[in-house]
Design a protein around this nucleic acid. Structure first.
Length: 747
DNA sequence: AGTGTGTGGTAGC
DNA sequence: AATCGCTACCACACACT
């Protein structure tokens, strides 16, 4: 059974539900409300029918279309015999069985990989008191375990691709242009970076305790924007989405929430709950404009600190300001100014720490201001669902429910140790903090420096063969590369989405990824250029050995070099996988550093290397001379060759036998002096100098075999660069990887 | 004990 | 006819050293 389904199932049979059914939620936690409602229905059913058996234990069953007997009766049979009902397909749970009388052609495809059974199966199971073989009750011929034959799958993909072609040249850009989640993520990154800059400009404030923190955001932001030019609709239930039955609701107003409609829900389901629901479109430009106004107003306050939470949401430290003004008055004024300039309502939470500010904001919505203090908070929060606590999502809330904790006030029933054991140290500690109305996070200490850059695409991915997979992968890698700009990537993590073995070939959501198995791999990428990166990504993708037609999505994430805590590592040795050693001709090619045209700072990428094993040069020095000789004898097999097409910048030293010198210096002490002078001479290394140094090091290796000196110099460069700019550090890193690459074959 | 990798969870509308 | 299910960050378990 699927974990989520299992949790629901376990929960249902775990007895005392009285406290959570229809549990009062001041926070509009309608998701919880409906989950509770479902639990209550099941409980009622079970009670009405008595719990007769566990025949359907681990069965999560979806009822489709008209049935005989009716849904109500079938539900009663299933639930009272230990099963559970799957309210809808897709989403986070999935059905183990579908009960249907007959299916439309489309649903035939959609359900092809489910166990689709006739209602008689349920009835007969109950009558005979055991779980019967479902295959005798198939509602469709091609149902499990027969998968769609390859030709059928191919046909399906070809048809889908007529509508949505993920290989079209502009697919990725047009996709992201319409993706709300992409919009939210990229806006957040931008705003974080702006706040980071701002922090440098704001006066350094004294930091008395307690602080005064504002948490401010717009009420149902997307809907509010959509309603700006349609004021007559404002009392109707409204949502923002692209409009189709399986499209997500990005935002819905309070009227719609009364019907149980929630953000993230599919339109089809929302329409079941609220048939009069009106769908309005996105307006990303206007979101940006409102966001700008919001942040401008915040900055104009001259606060102590600002942290971007979202495009429409910020945490603001206003402690200094509040020595003169009353915080709630400040918040009210801010609210009115924003309303005046954007035409939409914002709410503000005011409190002495982040946790309480967030909770205050929830209480303040819609269109209000709420102040919470250490003393007033426990009372005000007592009945709030744990689901509404920051950092507590679906999964943790479910685990808490297993512990009998659904409300904030229930937390004190459980010991700290139980929380930590069940939920992990971090979450446990956080919950205890919350219970004490404390928050260890301080917004002025929150790091807003970007540590990684990634792209991910899991919609419309339908590919026929390895070539297409490579093409798509390559396109996505280019998208990633375009976002790297002058950053310093160190490792790449590839996240691969593959259709789960028992997930239907045709996804419930139109062109969605369906239920997937996700696997990931991490590789070092220091020194790779775009081509090298592409090759690496494609290799990795192939290593997942997924049938092309089952690929459903791909994520690529680059972890950036950490320049805040310098590593004092000596040379890192790459370690090739045994497989790639034999395929060395396919290795990504070595690149020269980019020319100055690309700007003075990015030295990026001219060496390839995979994994790592740290060794320092003593290890090499101590190698048996036999091994050293062997290496030298096989030089051609492993030494890295620099492409000769760029040889214009190659110094003569590489091809002629002159004394081994760098700018006329040969002694190690002298060379170190040259390096020091070089590093002092410029904020960032110049391209020509880099080439010269690289070639000198290459020469030491390839022609002079003076490896010790080369390693020593590179380590020295690394050592010195620790106090210099990122460019110097990156150069050192690239040189280390390059040297490591040369030593590699001794492993 | 520290390091690196793979996995999983959460947040925003 | 549909649909645009992203992304950054944290925490953890585990393997390896």
């Amino acid at each position: 059974m699927h974990p989520a389904a299992k949790r629901l199932h376990d929960h249902e049979v775990s007895g005392d539900e009285t406290n959570i059914e229809y549990g009062a939620s001041e926070f509009g936690g309608f998701g919880q409300y409906f989950r509770n409602k479902q639990i209550k229905l099941d409980t009622q059913l079970r009670e009405a029918n008595q719990c007769r058996s566990q025949i359907f234990k681990d069965c999560h069953i979806y009822l489709n279309g008209r049935t005989e007997p009716s849904h109500t009766i079938l539900k009663g049979l299933i639930v009272s015999n230990g099963g559970s009902i799957c309210a809808f397909l897709g989403g986070k749970t999935y059905a183990t069985h579908i009960v249907a009388e007959h299916l439309t052609k489309r649903k035939n495809n959609q359900f092809a990989n489910y166990k689709v059974v006739k209602p008689a199966w349920v009835v007969n199971c109950v009558n005979q008191g055991k779980l019967l073989d479902w295959t005798n009750y198939r509602a469709i011929e091609s149902s499990l375990p027969t998968l769609d034959p390859k030709e059928t799958q191919e046909q399906i993909i070809l048809e889908e691709r007529e509508k949505v072609n993920c290989l079209a040249p502009d697919y990725i850009s047009s996709y992201y242009a319409r993706s709300r989640l992409h919009f939210l993520s990229t806006k957040k990154a931008e705003l974080r970076s702006k706040c980071q800059q701002l922090a440098g400009q704001l006066p350094v404030a004294e930091r008395p305790s307690p602080r005064t923190i504002l948490h401010i955001d717009f009420d149902s932001f997307f809907v509010a924007v959509a309603l700006k030019d349609k004021p007559d609709l404002k009392d109707q239930p409204i949502c923002v989405s692209w409009g189709g039955p399986s499209s997500d609701i990005a935002s819905c107003n309070y009227k719609a929430r009364e019907f149980g409609v929630q953000n993230g829900m599919w339109v089809s389901r929302a329409l079941q709950l609220c048939p009069k629901l009106v769908c309005l479109s996105y307006n990303f430009d206007e979101y940006t404009r409102c966001s700008d106004v919001l942040y401008q107003e915040i900055v104009d306050l001259r606060p102590d600190y600002v942290t971007a939470v979202s495009v429409d949401e910020a945490l603001v430290d206003v402690t200094s300001l509040c020595s003169k003004t009353d915080a709630s008055q400040l918040a009210q004024e801010l609210r009115s100014r924003i309303k005046a300039k954007t035409g939409i309502e914002a709410s503000v939470g005011v409190a002495p720490n982040i946790f309480l500010a967030k909770m205050a904001l929830r209480l303040a919505k819609p269109a209000g201001v709420v102040c919470l203090t250490q003393s007033s908070a426990p009372q005000r929060l007592a009945n709030c669902s744990v689901r509404d606590l920051p950092g507590i999502g679906y999964h943790i809330a479910a685990k808490l429910a297993d512990l009998g904790v659904t409300n904030y006030s229930h937390l004190k029933r459980v010991t700290e140790n139980t929380l930590k054991n069940q939920l992990g140290n971090a979450v446990g500690t956080k919950l205890v903090d919350y219970l004490n109305c404390q928050d260890s996070d301080d917004i002025s200490l929150m790091d807003q420096v970007q540590k990684s850059v990634g792209v991910e695409l899991c919609w419309g991915v339908r590919l026929l063969n390895d070539n297409e997979v490579a093409q798509f992968t390559s396109n996505l890698t280019e998208e990633l590369w375009s976002r790297v700009q002058s950053l310093y990537p160190e490792t790449l993590t590839i996240k691969f989405y593959r259709r789960a073995a028992d997930a239907p070939f045709v996804t419930p959501k139109y062109m969605g990824c369906g239920r997937c198995d996700v696997t990931s791999k991490t590789r070092r990428v220091v020194g790779l250029d775009l081509e090298g990166l592409k090759t690496l990504v494609i290799q990795c993708v192939q290593s997942f050995a997924c049938p092309p037609m089952d690929m459903r999505g791909l994520g690529l994430q680059l972890r950036l070099m950490d320049t805040t805590t310098p590593t004092h590592h000596a040379i890192k040795f790459p370690q090739l996988e045994t497989a790639s050693r034999s395929t060395s001709p396919n290795k990504p090619k070595i690149q020269l550093p980019p020319s100055r045209r690309r700007g003075p700072t990015t030295l990026s990428q001219f060496v390839n290397q995979p994994d790592k094993v740290e060794v320092d040069m003593e290890v090499f020095d101590n190698l048996p001379s036999q091994i050293k000789r062997e290496i030298m004898a096989h030089e051609d097999e492993f030494l890295v060759k620099v492409p000769s097409s760029r040889s214009r910048s190659e110094p003569a030293a590489v091809t002629t036998y002159e004394p081994v010198s760098f700018r006329g210096v040969t002694s190690e002490a002298g060379l170190r002096q040259v390096l020091r002078d070089w590093m002092r001479s410029a904020e960032s290394p110049h391209y020509e100098d880099v080439c010269e140094f690289r070639d000198f090091v290459d020469y030491l290796f390839d022609s002079d075999w003076n490896w010790t000196k080369a390693i020593s110099l590179v380590n020295y460069l690394n050592h010195c660069s620790l106090n210099l700019s990122q460019d110097w550090q990156y150069l050192a890193k690239v040189m280390q990887e390059r040297v490591a690459q040369k030593i590699l074959p001794i492993n």
